[in-house]
Computed example of a mutant assay.
Amino acid sequence: MIKELIVVEGKNDTAAVKRAVDADTIETGGSAVDRRVIAKIALAAERRGVIILTDPDHAGERIRKIVSSKVPGCKHAFIPEQDATAKGDIGVENASPEAIRHALAHVHTEFEGAPVLIGMDDLIAAGLIGHPSAAERRMALGNILGIGYCNGKQLYKRLAIFRITPEEFGDALRQMNQGGHTL
């Protein structure tokens, strides 16, 4: 059994998580996360810890931001968009048990006030900002690092709050470039 409670968006996500692992979930009920749900998540974080596992789309990112801004110290699990898409629908409920287990096995913990190890200049030099294929490259890099897709500003922040080292960043760039995602 996973010790932490897993924060998901709805009942179908809970069902998918329970098919993959033995875990308890808290459902946000969508992107309008109310104060009662935040209070429940905060109590869970204090008692057991929480892992946020939301859909790899705009609404899922909004929920992730709301919860992590109100409940410090959350862990984050990310499922790549291609592993959570079925018939044009994106969501945790569409992910295979293997994809969910992989995401939960590679969680990242937020660290407040984390030092910046990778700068904006590094992101520009790597073609992750200001490059014609920057969005595609950020998606590939986010999938390799297990931190999800994000825009350039969010990538900069996630690299810091998840304490991605320059070595991890360099290894991920090499892997991405070898996979055909070159500058």
Rank of each mutant, 00 (worst) to 15 (best):
T54K: 00
K3P: 04
L123T: 05
K3V: 10
H76P: 01
T25S: 02
M139L: 11
G148R: 11
A86Y: 10
R163A: 02
E112F: 14
R163G: 00
G179N: 14
G88D: 09
L43W: 00
K153Q: 12
A44N: 01
M176Q: 08
A16F: 05
G91Y: 02
G179A: 14
T14C: 05
E110C: 06
T54R: 03
N94R: 15
E167P: 00
L117H: 08
A135G: 11
V33E: 01
C150Y: 05
R62L: 13
I124Q: 09
G30P: 00
G152W: 07
I147E: 04
V67D: 07
A114E: 07
P166K: 08
D89R: 11
I26N: 04
A45W: 01
L128F: 12
L155A: 11
L104C: 08
K70P: 01
G113D: 15
A140H: 09
E93Q: 11
F111V: 14
S69V: 09
D34M: 04
N151C: 08
D83Q: 15
R64Y: 01
F111K: 10
D22E: 12
G30Y: 04
A77P: 04
T182K: 09
M1L: 11
A99V: 02
M176A: 13
K157S: 14
G152F: 03
N94M: 15
E81Y: 08
G30N: 00
I90G: 06
V67E: 06
V21I: 14
I38D: 03
I2F: 06
G127Y: 02
I63F: 09
I63P: 00
V116Y: 08
A23R: 03
A126S: 11
C74G: 13
V50R: 04
M1P: 14
L173I: 15
G170I: 11
G113P: 00
V33C: 01
R138W: 05
Y156A: 12
I124R: 14
T54I: 01
G60F: 02
I147M: 09
I26H: 06
P166A: 06
G146Y: 08
N151R: 07
V116W: 09
I38G: 02
A20R: 10
Q178L: 15
K40T: 14
E27R: 00
K87I: 06
R62Y: 06
H181C: 10
I79V: 03
H76F: 12
D22A: 09
H58P: 00
Q175G: 15
M120S: 07
V21G: 02
E110H: 10
I164L: 11
Q82R: 15
E81S: 03
P115V: 15
E4N: 05
A103S: 14
A23F: 04
G60L: 02
P115C: 10
A39I: 06
V107F: 12
